[in-house]
Design a protein around this nucleic acid. Sequence first.
RNA 1: GGCGACGUGGUGAAGUGGUUCAACACGGAGGUCUGCAAAACCUCUAUUCACCGGUUCGAAUCCGGUCGUCGCCUCCA
Length: 470
Amino acid sequence: MTILLHDTLTGADQPLEPLEPGHVRVYSCGPTVYGPAHIGNFRSFLFADLLVRHLRRSGLRVTWVMNITDIDDKIIKGAKAAGTSIEELSERWLEVFLADADRLRMARPDVLPRATAHIDEIVALITTLLEGDHAYRTDDGSIFFRIASWPMYGRLARLDPGEMRVGERVIADEYAKDDVRDFALWKGPKDGEPAWDTAIGSGRPGWHIECSAMSMKHLGPSFDIHTGGIDLIFPHHEDEIAQSEAATGQPFVRTWLHCAHLQSSGSKMAKSVGNIARVGDLLDAGVSPRALRYALIAVHYRAPNQYSDEALLAAGAAVERLDAVVNALDAYREARADDPSLDTALAAAEHGFSSCLDADLNVSAALAVVFDLVRDLNRRIDGRTMSTADAERALALLRSFDEVLGVLPADQDELDDDQRRLLDERAAARASRDWAASDRLRDELASRGITVEDTRDGQRWRRQLEAAHG
RNA sequence: GGCGACGUGGUGAAGUGGUUCAACACGGAGGUCUGCAAAACCUCUAUUCACCGGUUCGAAUCCGGUCGUCGCCUCCA
């Protein structure tokens, strides 16, 4: 089926038609590594992750690029404050970002290009813009993009350049720009700031130009999908379009995808609002990374996602429901003929799940399909109507869904020797109907993070939903 | 001031003209099963979709208005 995606530029759902059939090129605006990303940032990264995972599960090859901004005002300021070098600071926070991303099970992008490693490409791009008279130099060695040279400016954000209030709240003559709306491609050298000596002079790259340079370097002058948070539409992505298309004369991006904000206590999660939560802090406090991931991806990407402790608890409960059915299917043994009605149910669920995600990544509806299937499977488990092979096929489908969702426990999860011994002892105690010992051992295992349940298939165990166990 | 998104139950949240359209998850109340639990299952938990008009045989879904919320216009995922 056709995959439809809601393009910010046209405001319409567009069928995904990769420039190279079967191969989708995706660029996502990544983090500025000057401190720990908050979970609002991760909502947008995980939305891209969900997209990439769904495309791959749909049989498409995906090249996913996510930039790392490792030079900018905040990093310079942060390094100064911390008394370390810019390289040390950005390296440190890049590691934290990757660790957080791993813990939230974000697929690792195929390329994680860094701005400081692409100075040549940035300089080349700016040179082209200068030659085309789309850019100009100022006395301090800075180079600006000339918005007046690009009539399409404002299309993405639906802003009329003449009506824009840009400049009202900034010092308009700070850089002696021709027009207050013009934006910096290259920032001239300043005392105490890093600078690169290049063909266009000494200085450092502006923020917008790095994304143009790196996306086109790794994905070509035109590529399929560019993602980011809704707050990047203007000016960041607007500027990317202007400078990229002015330089290449080719359409930059086919489909622009923007996710709405993660909200907390009524407004968007942002450092300046002071309502941020961080991955590391939450996990240290015992929040399950799988529950956190679920909470961040379960709402349609274009709708604001209300984050709260309550939402996190609800997400955890939903994940546990999935854990329970996976566990039950795993333990299920029944020597009987296959139930032909199961395949019908599985096929319907597969179709429903894929269709929902095809429709502009409607993950809420896809999850509804999953939970409908879960209820059906639980009924079949209770009724012992499936064969062992049926249960295996059902489990395989749930694991297949999880290729996109990424919230199920790992497949090959094993108890350690100590836990295994306790579980075996408990089985023996139960065989001799020693309930006191059985209950004591159950408590013992619970204190080690293992929940034990008794079923017709014998003891069934699963890990409690905690950070340490994930 | 300009632009954009949106207002569905106790909470989060699907659904954008009619065939279960009020999904799904969480929470809550009962019940079944169980040595006890847990999990699971069953029943119940919005005659109603911000409000007011209109279009239509028919609207949560389309149109107009009102009120309200959020976002962008400035670094920002």
